[in-house]
Every structure is written in structure tokens, then in C-alpha cells.
Nucleic acid binder design. Structure first.
Length: 705
RNA sequence: GGGCGAUUAGCUCAGUUGGUAGAGCAACCCGUUUACACCGGGAAGGUCACAGGUUCGAGUCCUGUAUCGCCCACCA
């Protein structure tokens, strides 16, 4: 009888081995594709290694990793370890995201707690403070990614504010300008009065509200509005040209009327965008604070005037209401309208949707502000083609539909943000006075053009730079890495950032490099709590993956995140399920203990080998086709129900099984390694005659091609 | 308003191209004969939302209904 090493006398204790194992892997250098051992064919000739690349979605360096991070690290690590063992030249590029607005919001909350405010700080000081905050979070976060077992190449780690990333972003901005796809224009933007910045459409959410709907007398008309506080400057009344009720009024006709702060002159406008069914079929317009009104004003070349300031207070145009917060002002204004007999009726049950800031929930105040916009349609068109002709494949099919639908209805993208934490926009302006006409001249460049020029104080939307991540990280256009590893193999990320990030990467990648940035898009769903509720701090149901890892072991956490989790659908993370896989880890541990106590002599039983090889082939196919949840489940059942429960029991007292047991153990460890890397590596080190790491062992099934 | 999805055991969910329903947890009975009590054995539990259709055969494909959910959108 052989003896299993002493460590097998106690149950498997992940906390004792994981740190050491990770250190061994990292020090081996094999996370770096340049150091991988050469593969030789049967004739001893060196085999050309096919690249396999994943760019890790860079976690926001503003806090701890959450369950979603643990999920993507696990999925990607499984693919990387699988392909590495299959002899591919595997590169997994880790990163960290400065996460512009997101991080600034986190930092502002911190400032608030300290009784400070960013609006009282110098931009440079604020920037420096957030940088320190971000960098310390970044190194903290890197430790957590290691704890989850990520076999990524730390020597190639990229931060979204690295110089070469910024340079790439600047080049793209300039190219967009040169190609006529960039414009600066006063447009209605989504303005958050709390955060004092504009936001893209994706950064707003909708809330259904029941508000009062006021029917106001406007000269001979009745207009309906939910926002009387915006109506001070309304001097145009608009109706549909075909509306018979108002046929007697003609375009441009003027009339006098008594309004909130006195008599005004109004003008009739006919516009086909008016819905005759809604309200009274007549409305006045507030072009500065409403997108529809803005479009009407633009079509008819009407002036527009700001009524509400950037902090949500009324401007002098409001007369006696100047300086009031719009919320407080509404009731007072209605009171005054009522006293003047201008309120016809009030509908108390008007239900509508209002846009709110996705961070603070405050109502968005549409404001006109000159911003940088990208004309998205030409970019989207290329992306649509790439999806349709299969250059990029989307998992799953329903996400492909969602993506295409969004791309087909794309809107121009506002990439200016009025925050300091981000990449400064490389644009300079000066006003010129040509022929008595004031106008603004812009230059797109990083260097100061000289006297009289002022730099745009805004920064880029983070997603504009993130959208260039795959080619920026790989050193487009000249580096060897770019030539070797681009297009990358898989983009694996959350379905919730399909539009924010994946779609933008696809469009900008195609635009800059002419190639798709990734071949496959693998989207995972949201990680919810055991009951299927969204995790949130306020509910107190947030499950920290690191705590789970400490309690049950990283391998158990990984299995719990994978099994039963089909791509694209949400996953409920139940600690009890993780507990089940902790038991599985111990089961494998004890299988090893038993097998190591046997002599490994004799013949390998061919029917058991064939049976195993069939499972191995099956599992291989599952991983190749991204059914990793199924591969993990199959291994679980083979190892427990077949190998341990039947084969092992059958072998007791029969020494001729020795070689078979070793064969099955060794190869099971290989198959399990991508899923449960720590445990399998630890056992591998205890097998006789094993001097190399399991990390770079050869996968038991040949690659398909 | 438009789009996408879900409905399978008490709970949470799998079920790859259509071929007599599966897991984890919970609940029930039994068992400490040296791999493992982080265990073993056994039994129980589902008209696969509903109604039609295609098929020799449907949880799986098609149509409709109901309920739930998600995403997108400038209705005053």
C-alpha cells in the first residue's frame, strides 16, 4: 500500500492553499503568452500556436469587486485555462477603469460625508484627490482579482488613463473630426442639476409619475402642461396644420394676451409634429427646456431663451419668481395664474414618464448647451453589417436582436461631460469677429494653439474611451501585440452594458481598425441574491464574492457561479449552492486521498477509459460552444456519481484497478482545472512524477481543428 | 408607444439538433463494515402556465391567450 501525503488526513482547506498556488502560477510566468512552453508535433517540429485573446472588462477602480465581477472573472478564466491547456497562445489583458462619472459620483458622496463639495474646489485639486483615491482602489481590486484565480497577464495590465490609451482616444477624436463625423452644436442635453453635467440618453432612466396636468388659458387657446414653471417665455403657440378646430388661425398670425407676468404678444405656428388627440391639440413651446419644442423652434427658426438655470432655479425672465427652486415655484405660479383666472381646469391624475438621473434619481432638466456630438449612423451601419454577415457572433440570439434593434435606431452621441474626472477634451476655441458677426472658431488638438485660445473645460464620456479599449490596450496600430492578438477572441461582459460598451466597442473598433474588435460576444446576466432580488446596498442583500471565497473557497464560488447559469440570463447566487460545491471540492480531495493510497500498477481498463474519453470529448465540445454551465455540471456528476460512487467502490480490494484509478484521477483533474483551478493544482502537486504545473498541462482531448 | 424574454418538483433553476422529465436546497426513512458525516443507501415529489396546430413522437417547433419581467423611446 502507498500512503497519501499527510495533508489529505484533514478535509480540504482552501484558505490554506489558494494564496500559495496563485503565487506559484504568477511566478511561473505562464500567464504571459510569451513564456508559454512551445508545443511540438509528432515529428518534433514546433507547432504554430494559434492566439486566443480576451480583454478583461476593466473593473471600476472605485470600490470592492461585486458578484458580477466574480462571474466574469470565472467565465473568462475558464475559457483562458481551457485554451491554454489546448496549446493556444493565450493572452488575457487585465485592466482598471477610472470610470469617469461613476467614480466622481462615488467621490462626491465621500466629500459630502466630510462636509465638502466639489463645487468649492479647484479642478486640479479635485482631480488629484480622485486620482489618489482611484489608484489605491485599483491596487486593492487587483488583489481581489487574484483571489478569484484570474490567470491574466499582469505584465500587460492597462489603466484607462495610461498615456497610450489617452493618445489613442485623442487620435480617434481627431479622425472623427477630419471625417466629418464630429460636430459641436447647441442641442438639448440631459442635464442633471445635482451633478452639474450633461448625460447621454443611456445615463438616464425613466420614472412613471402621476402629476397634475394644468389646462391654462393662453389668449383664445387652452394649452395643457405639467410644467407651468417653464412657461414664462412661451411666445409661440403651435397646432397641427390640419386641425379643423384651429383652421381660422394662420401661420405667423399674432395676438395679444395676458400671461403670468403681464401682457405679451404671441405668434401662431403650424407644425405637423403636433398630436391633435393630446390635450387640446395646441401647445406653447419652451425650446430651451424641451426636446420636442427645441426641434419645432429649429424648424421654424424661432428664438429660444433659458428659463431655468443650471442648478434648477428660475432666471430673471420669471420676474417675481426669479431665484426660486422650480419645485417650490410651481405651486406659487399656479396660484398666481388662478388669481388671474387663467387656469381652466386641473387634471389630478395625469400619468407620465419623466427622465431621471440614473445615479441620483433627480429629474433631468433638459437644457440647451453646446456639446460635442458624434454622428452615429455611419458607424452603426458598419456594425450592423458585421453582425449580419457573421464577422461578430452574439450569444445569445435574443441579444443579437436587441443589439441590432438599438443600432438600427441609433441617435447621435453626446460625448461631453462637465466633470473633472476624465480625459480632457483636446479642443480649443476663440471667438472671432468677422464682418461684425460674432462667431466661435474651434481647433481639435492637444497643444495650446496660442494667444486668445481657450481650452474646452469638459472631459470625455468615459464610454467614449472605453469604447476603444480592445485596440487601445493592444497598442494599435503598430505593436506586435496588436498584430498578433487583434481581433480578440471573445468579449465576455454583462448584458446590462451591451449598449454602453459592447456596441460602442464594435462601432469604434470597426471605425479605427477596419476589423471587428472581437469574434464572439458572450453576455452574462445580472447576479441576484438567493431570492432573485437585485442586490443593493439599501436592501442590505449584497453578497460579497470575496467573503464567499473566504468561507467556501474560490473553487466552490466559481462552480456556484457557473453551474445552471446560462448565458444572457440572470443568476441567483445562493450561498447554500456554493456550500454544495464546497462539499464537491472535499469529495475530489478524498478521491485523491484514496487513489494515492493505491499502487498504480496494472493495465488501464479500456472500457473505463473509453467511457471517460467520451465524457471528456463531450465536455470539450460544451466549452468550445460556450455551454460551460453544462460542462461543469457533467463533470460534477461524472466525478461524484460515476467515478467516486461506482468505480472507486468497485475497485476496493482489487489492486489491478490501480493504473485505471490514476488515469481517471489525472485526467479528471485536467478537465476540472479550468473550473476549480486551486484544488486541482494542489492535488496535482501531490501526484507522483509531476514536476510541471497543471496550469500548462495538455488538455486530454485534441483541439477540433 | 416599440422591442426582447420568462412560465418545468415545496424553493431556486438546468434540460445543446424534437425521441418515455433533471440538479442544488428543503422535507421523509435507514445507515458511523478504514477515501470522504463537507458521507453512504433508500423512498417521495411535476397533466413541463393555458388552448390549438405540425409530427410516428413536442418541455423542445408554429399560432393564440393569460400572468410576470427586462430593455428602448423627445408625447406637450
Amino acid at each position: 500500500m502507498s500512503e497519501a501525503p499527510d495533508k489529505f488526513n484533514t478535509p480540504y482547506q482552501p484558505q490554506n492553499v489558494e494564496g500559495e498556488i496563485y503565487k506559484k502560477w504568477e511566478e511561473s510566468g505562464f500567464f504571459n503568452p510569451d513564456n508559454l512552453p512551445l508545443r511540438l508535433d509528432a515529428q518534433g517540429k514546433q507547432v504554430e500556436m494559434e492566439p486566443f485573446t480576451i480583454i478583461m472588462p476593466p473593473p471600476n477602480a472605485n470600490g470592492s469587486l461585486h458578484a458580477g465581477h466574480a462571474l466574469f472573472v470565472t467565465v473568462q478564466d475558464i475559457l483562458m485555462r481551457f485554451e491554454r491547456m489546448r496549446g493556444k497562445k493565450t493572452l488575457w489583458v487585465p485592466g482598471a477603469d477610472h470610470a469617469g462619472f461613476e467614480t466622481q459620483v462615488v467621490y462626491e458622496k465621500k466629500l459630502e460625508k466630510e462636509g465638502r463639495s466639489r463645487f468649492e474646489m479647484q479642478a486640479d485639486d479635485l482631480y488629484k484627490e480622485i486620482m489618489d483615491f482611484t489608484l489605491s482602489n485599483k491596487s486593492f481590486m487587483e488583489g481581489q482579482i487574484r483571489q478569484l484565480g484570474a490567470s491574466c497577464d499582469w505584465s500587460r495590465e492597462v489603466f484607462t488613463l495610461d498615456e497610450r490609451v489617452i493618445d489613442t482616444v485623442y487620435d480617434t477624436f481627431k479622425k472623427l473630426n477630419d471625417d466629418g463625423l464630429l460636430y459641436r452644436a447647441p442641442r438639448i442635453v440631459n442635464w442633471c442639476p445635482k451633478h452639474q453635467t450633461s448625460l447621454s440618453n443611456l445615463e438616464t432612466e425613466r420614472e412613471t409619475r402621476t402629476d397634475k396636468f394644468y389646462y391654462l388659458k393662453y389668449g383664445p387657446f387652452t394649452i395643457a402642461t405639467a410644467r407651468p414653471e417653464t412657461k414664462f417665455g412661451d411666445k409661440y403657440v403651435v397646432m397641427h396644420p390640419d386641425d379643423k378646430r384651429y383652421a381660422q388661425y394662420s401661420q405667423g398670425q399674432q395676438f395679444e394676451l395676458e400671461w403670468i407676468n403681464g401682457p405679451i404678444t404671441a405668434t401662431v405656428i403650424k407644425d405637423e409634429s403636433i398630436d391633435m388627440e393630446l390635450g387640446t391639440g395646441v401647445m406653447t413651446i419652451t425650446p430651451w427646456h424641451d426636446p420636442i419644442d427645441f426641434d419645432i423652434a429649429k424648424r421654424h427658426n424661432l428664438p429660444y431663451e433659458q428659463v431655468i438655470d443650471w442648478r434648477g432655479k428660475l432666471l430673471p425672465i420669471a420676474g417675481e419668481f426669479e431665484g426660486m427652486n422650480i419645485k417650490d415655484a410651481r405651486a406659487k405660479i399656479v396660484e398666481k395664474l388662478q388669481s388671474k383666472g387663467l387656469v381652466e381646469k386641473i387634471d389630478e391624475t395625469y400619468s407620465h414618464e419623466v427622465p431621471v438621473c440614473y445615479k441620483c434619481g433627480r429629474e433631468i432638466e433638459p437644457q440647451v448647451r453646446p456639446q460635442w456630438f458624434i454622428s452615429m449612423q455611419p458607424l452603426a451601419q458598419k456594425a450592423i453589417e458585421a453582425v449580419k454577415n457573421g464577422d461578430v457572433r452574439v450569444l445569445t440570439e435574443n441579444h443579437e436582436k436587441i443589439l441590432l434593434h438599438w443600432l438600427e435606431n441609433i441617435q447621435d452621441w453626446n460625448i461631453s461631460r462637465q466633470i473633472v474626472w476624465g480625459i480632457p477634451i483636446p479642443a480649443w476655441s476663440r471667438s472671432t469677429d468677422a464682418h461684425g458677426k460674432q462667431s466661435e472658431e474651434w481647433k481639435i488638438q492637444v497643444e495650446d494653439p496660442g494667444d486668445g485660445w481657450t481650452r474646452d473645460p469638459d472631459t470625455f464620456d468615459t464610454w467614449f474611451s472605453s469604447g476603444q479599449w480592445p485596440f487601445a490596450t493592444l497598442g494599435y496600430p503598430d505593436s506586435n501585440d496588436f498584430k498578433t492578438f487583434y481581433p480578440t477572441s471573445v468579449m465576455e461582459t454583462g448584458a446590462d452594458i451591451l449598449f454602453f460598451w459592447v456596441a460602442r466597442m464594435l462601432m469604434l473598433g470597426l471605425y479605427r481598425t477596419g476589423k471587428v474588435p472581437f469574434r464572439d460576444i458572450y453576455l452574462h446576466g445580472l447576479v441576484r441574491d438567493a431570492k432573485g432580488q437585485k442586490m443593493s446596498k439599501s436592501k442590505g442583500n449584497v453578497i460579497s464574492p470575496l467573503e464567499i471565497s473566504n468561507e467556501y473557497g474560490t473553487d466552490a464560488l466559481r462552480m456556484g457561479l457557473i453551474v445552471g447559469n446560462t448565458p444572457g440570463t440572470d443568476l441567483n447566487l445562493d450561498p447554500r449552492k456554493i456550500g454544495a460545491y464546497k462539499k464537491f471540492a472535499n469529495k475530489i480531495w478524498n478521491i485523491a486521498r484514496f487513489v494515492l493510497s493505491q499502487e498504480h500498477d496494472g493495465e488501464i481498463k479500456s472500457e473505463l477509459k473509453d467511457e471517460f474519453d467520451a465524457i471528456a470529448a463531450d465536455v470539450t465540445k460544451d466549452i468550445e460552444e460556450y455551454r460551460i454551465y453544462m460542462a461543469a455540471d457533467k463533470l460534477y456528476h461524472y466525478v461524484w456519481d460515476r467515478f467516486a460512487a461506482e468505480i472507486l467502490e468497485e475497485s476496493k480490494g482489487k489492486p489491478e484497478y490501480g493504473a485505471t484509478l490514476y488515469y481517471l484521477l489525472e485526467n479528471s483533474l485536467k478537465l476540472l482545472h479550468p473550473f476549480m483551478p486551486f484544488l486541482t493544482e494542489e492535488i496535482w502537486g501531490s501526484l507522483p512524477n509531476k514536476s510541471t504545473l497543471l496550469l500548462i498541462e495538455t488538455w486530454p482531448v485534441n483541439a477540433r481543428n
